[in-house]
Amino acid sequence: MITPETIARHELVGLHVQVTESTDPTLVGCHGPVVNETTNTLVVRDGSRTRQVPKAIATFAFCLPETDSTVFVDGERLIARPARRTERTGGSQWQ
């Protein structure tokens, strides 16, 4: 279940996102489902185009599918390889 507590460690692909703040004004307001993720960026399908949004300079508003609520996440917190974000606060005993 994706909750505000787990979202930074959970899968972001498929979530609806809106860029609420950014140092790059052309990115603000860009919204749509997340289609891909890299270490430093999120790829958002904004209408007919896809936009690659750097995590470091943006604040994101994610729509949570289960509860229909919105969570604001500072992009800084998401910087990590996609598969490794899950491991950041324990979980695996081998870390």
Partner: peptide, 29 residues
């Protein structure tokens, strides 16, 4: 742990959807 298992499930449903939408490369990632 639970989060990892949920992520895998979610990724698989989106991969299947991507194939249905004709985007096989996205499904591969």
């Amino acid at each position: 742990m639970a989060i990892a298992a949920e992520r895998i499930e979610r990724l698989h449903t989106f991969a299947t959807e991507a194939v249905r939408a004709g985007e096989q490369d996205r499904a591969r990632t």
